[in-house]
Design a protein around this nucleic acid. Structure first.
Lengths: 337, 337
DNA sequence: CTGTTAGCGCGTTCAC
DNA sequence: GTGAACGCGCTAACAG
């Protein structure tokens, strides 16, 4: 491995001079600078970032931990984070917790061990609290994305989940629907809770009674077994004419289940959801959705994180909370009755 | 920051003993081990991975560089790589080159600077050659995914592109199509070249003359401007009854373009392509595709990479080439004529 | 079983 | 303008 000492020897200077050339610090004569540069090229020198981080006590690395890398909401978010990180000279590393608290813990350990300068985290849910406490204990700045965690103050970027749920329900009632069901993520996830709240409020405003049987609280991530959804559909009576899904994954699974039993969407049951389906939905723009600004989640969150890092004092500034609007895109998955 | 010296002092042992406890090396009495462990917990000690990597001369990090993080083919591939890496105790970091040779170069620099132990690389194309030479020069093991680069031998995981193209064309001819066009990626990308070859061979076997005008060679990644596709569609005469797309992105864009001009798929034009559209296509399984085994690309590639790393001698073993089969899923995007 | 020494590659003093 | 010495946190090699 080529080191600054190899460069120094060959260029007839000290290692310190090489370091200065690399970092453009101090005063160096053009002559030695050029000489050093030439030798660096000749030997294909690449600075060792780890040695550098060790002495500088910072890595210039941000870590983004998402919960489902196959969900276009999160990949688009990742693109936003990537762009913002690059803009400020940070490298961005990704991890995928798969909605698993255990995998999340592993990543938190990795993050601490590798001394990332900051963390962008879509927490798996309220059970992420100990992980956040660990980060806080070690004074690692972090920003929460998409979900809050009760008991831990921090910077956070959220979507307006309650408002989004209200809009979806209102849209359905405006098309004549009164039997509106909700399939949602775990109540241990803040966004799911708010979506339930928005749903209940909107029902109330529309003078529709709330029935707990109309709500299925399950997992946001993809599953192989659809039987839970099946039996939920079975036990609602009278059956709903419309279903609100807490995210795009659930919408797809509900529709698959409906199709499997020969129920047509939207002719027999309407379906709406949070989050768009990615570029591939454009073949046939079908689902009416709350299209959250995924790219902005990542971009703005990263900006906030870098601000926080550069303030040095991790808990110095007041916590900031960005709530992005819930914009509805009306397409063809709702029928008028 | 808590270091092994802090632990050592508080536990009344030397730093070396602490190191041994952490790494489970050498012989240590249960008593001191427990004592050290207790102090580590008490002080919330986390080993500094960078210091460790510096002395061990290895980082236990693999880097996966893909060309389009929003493409489900690559995110699924990433899941496979992640699982394989974890299984062998490696951490996996991701990068996204966006099909840009320049961004790819930036990532190569980062990879070298951070001393990743190995690289999984979906190259942007033949122009990636200098980047691969850089990696080779610095003796960083790498595995190519999905695309080969002429002039550089290496381990590689490919799909059977030629066979896939033949299958798609044969499927179309079996449904009576004779006017079959091809929209493809850049000829600087090996998989695109093979898909063109397979297309030409299949035409020949079916006694269909090849016409260069029926082929559009463009970019695999998403674009905002569809005019190139429009004018291509315009200049083919007679117009094709079927279109083969070199990947899923191109298929979506062709279909969007067709829809925009009021052409129905598959009633008026049939469309088939390489790569599936991800879980969200399941709402309405529509496109007939060559469903490449994306997860296996990542999983097997990572295995190969780790084998190569653990052989120490980067160029010791003969290069391995895995070609994954091209399985067709027939759905509804092809009409019979 | 445990400790001492040295060095991984680099940047920050402080001299010259 | 430039260099020598020291330390970032950790572990391999050798002693004891």
């Amino acid at each position: 491995m080529v080191t600054i000492y190899d460069i120094a020897a060959k260029a007839g200077v000290s290692a310190m001079t090489v370091s200065r050339v690399i970092n453009n610090t101090g005063k160096i004569s053009d002559k030695t600078r050029n000489k050093v540069r030439r030798v660096m090229e000749e030997l294909n020198y690449v600075p060792n970032q780890m040695a550098r981080s060790l002495v500088l006590q910072q890595s210039n690395v941000l870590f983004l931990l998402i919960t489902d890398i196959t969900n276009p909401f999160y990949t688009t978010l990742a693109r936003g984070a990537e762009d913002a990180a690059k803009k400020h000279g940070y490298r961005l590393l990704f991890g995928n917790s798969d909605e698993s608290v255990e995998k999340e813990k592993d990543y938190i350990d990795t993050i601490l061990a590798t001394r990332a300068d900051g963390v962008l985290l879509a927490p798996t849910g309220d059970l992420s609290l100990p992980h956040l406490e660990t980060l806080r204990l070690h004074r690692v700045p972090f920003v929460l994305l998409d979900r809050e965690v009760p008991g831990m103050d921090s910077d956070v970027v959220l979507g307006d989940s309650k408002e989004g749920a209200r809009k979806l329900v209102d849209h359905l009632t405006s098309r004549g629907h009164r039997r509106i069901a909700l399939i949602n993520g775990s109540p241990l996830i803040s966004s799911a809770r708010l979506r339930l709240e928005g749903y209940r409020e909107a029902l109330k405003l529309n003078d529709i009674p709330f029935d707990q049987n109309d709500v299925l609280e399950t997992a946001f991530e993809p599953r192989s077994d659809l039987s839970e959804i099946e039996s939920w559909l079975d036990r609602m009576s009278p059956p709903p004419t419309a279903i609100v899904a807490g995210n795009n994954v659930l919408a797809v699974e509900v529709i698959r289940t409906l199709h499997a039993r020969g129920v047509r969407v939207p002719e027999e049951v309407s379906v709406v959801c949070f989050d768009d389906l990615g570029p591939y939905s454009e073949i046939d723009p079908f689902l009416t959705v709350i299209a959250q600004q995924a790219y902005q989640f990542g971009y703005l969150g990263t900006q906030m994180l870098i601000d926080r890092i550069q303030e040095r004092d991790v808990t110095g500034l007041p916590w900031k909370k960005i709530v992005l609007p819930a914009d509805m895109i009306v397409r063809r998955s709702v029928s008028t009755i």
